Every structure is written in structure tokens, then in C-alpha cells.
Amino acid sequence: MLDALTIATAVAALVLAAWCGFAAYRDQPTKDWHFLAMAVVSLLAAVQLVVGIVQLGRGEKPEQGTTIFVAYLIGAFACVPAAGFMSLGERTRWGSVTVAAGGVVLAVLEVRLYDIWGG
């Protein structure tokens, strides 16, 4: 995996989590700017998904197994969009909390992907 991409995705996810956590602290729901930030984080996760699949296609193998690596890649890709859709259903501060939690989960998944690959 590309270490820089993994770090960038994790940092962007944590920034999103902090921003949405601050919005929740201020008793605000997710707003358009939050969704724009979610799109950027999701784009980074999508790039990581493509890079991971390309590396597997080249014959490179993760240390802890291909199946678990692909499962974590898909989970990382789906994490923030799922939280975003759930926040649309909850237009209170708890929608912001949901996205903040999704950002933290994505950052943890990035660390785990790094470990699975052999970092």
C-alpha cells in the first residue's frame, strides 16, 4: 500500500471527525460543508481501494491475507458514506455525532489496513 495515501486518508478522516464533533458540541446537524468534506474523504478512500486492488492484481500480497485485506478495503470505502446517509435521517446533533464516529472508525480502519499489508 502507499503509506502516504493511508496517512492522508486517516488524517482527513480525523479532521472530519473533529469538525463534525465540534458541530455536535454546538448542537448543529450536518450541513452542506460537512457533506463536501465527506466527499473528499470518500474520494481518498476510493483511491485507496483502487490502488489496493491494482496492487493485488500485480501479484503483491498482504502479509495477513488477501481476503481480510479486501474486506477492510471495502469497509474503509463504505464507512464515511454510510455515516453520511445515516446523518441525513437524523437531522439533529446526533447526525453530526454519527459522522464524527464514522471518521474515527475510518481512521482506525486505515491503521488496521497498514498492519494487514505489512507495515
Rank of each mutant, 00 (worst) to 15 (best):
T66C: 04
A17T: 11
T92M: 00
A39P: 01
K31L: 09
A76T: 04
C79T: 13
A10N: 06
K31A: 11
P29S: 14
P62R: 09
R93K: 08
A71L: 01
I116Y: 03
S87F: 06
E90F: 04
A8R: 15
L113S: 01
A23P: 00
V111H: 08
A78I: 05
V111G: 14
G75V: 00
L43H: 10
W117Y: 11
V11Q: 06
Y72Q: 08
S87I: 11
A4W: 02
Y114T: 12
G84P: 03
T98E: 09
Y72F: 06
L109S: 05
V108E: 08
V108P: 05
A37V: 07
G89Y: 08
R91F: 07
G84R: 03
A12E: 11
H34I: 15
F22W: 02
G118C: 12
Q48H: 15
I74E: 04
V97C: 12
A8D: 15
D27K: 01
S42M: 01
G119E: 11
A100W: 03
F77P: 03
L14Y: 07
L109Y: 02
A10V: 10
V40E: 08
A83Q: 05
D27E: 05
L5M: 13
G75W: 02
L14V: 10
K61M: 13
V99L: 12
E110V: 05
K31E: 15
T67M: 01
I68L: 01
G75Y: 00
I116W: 01
P81H: 10
A46T: 14
M38Q: 14
M86V: 04
L14F: 06
P81L: 14
E63F: 04
M86W: 11
A76W: 00
T6G: 11
T66H: 03
V50H: 11
V11K: 10
S42L: 01
T9Q: 07
S87D: 05
G59F: 07
W33G: 11
G84T: 10
F22Y: 02
S87A: 15
V11P: 07
Q64G: 00
G95F: 08
R58Q: 14
A24H: 02
D3M: 00
A8K: 09
F85I: 12
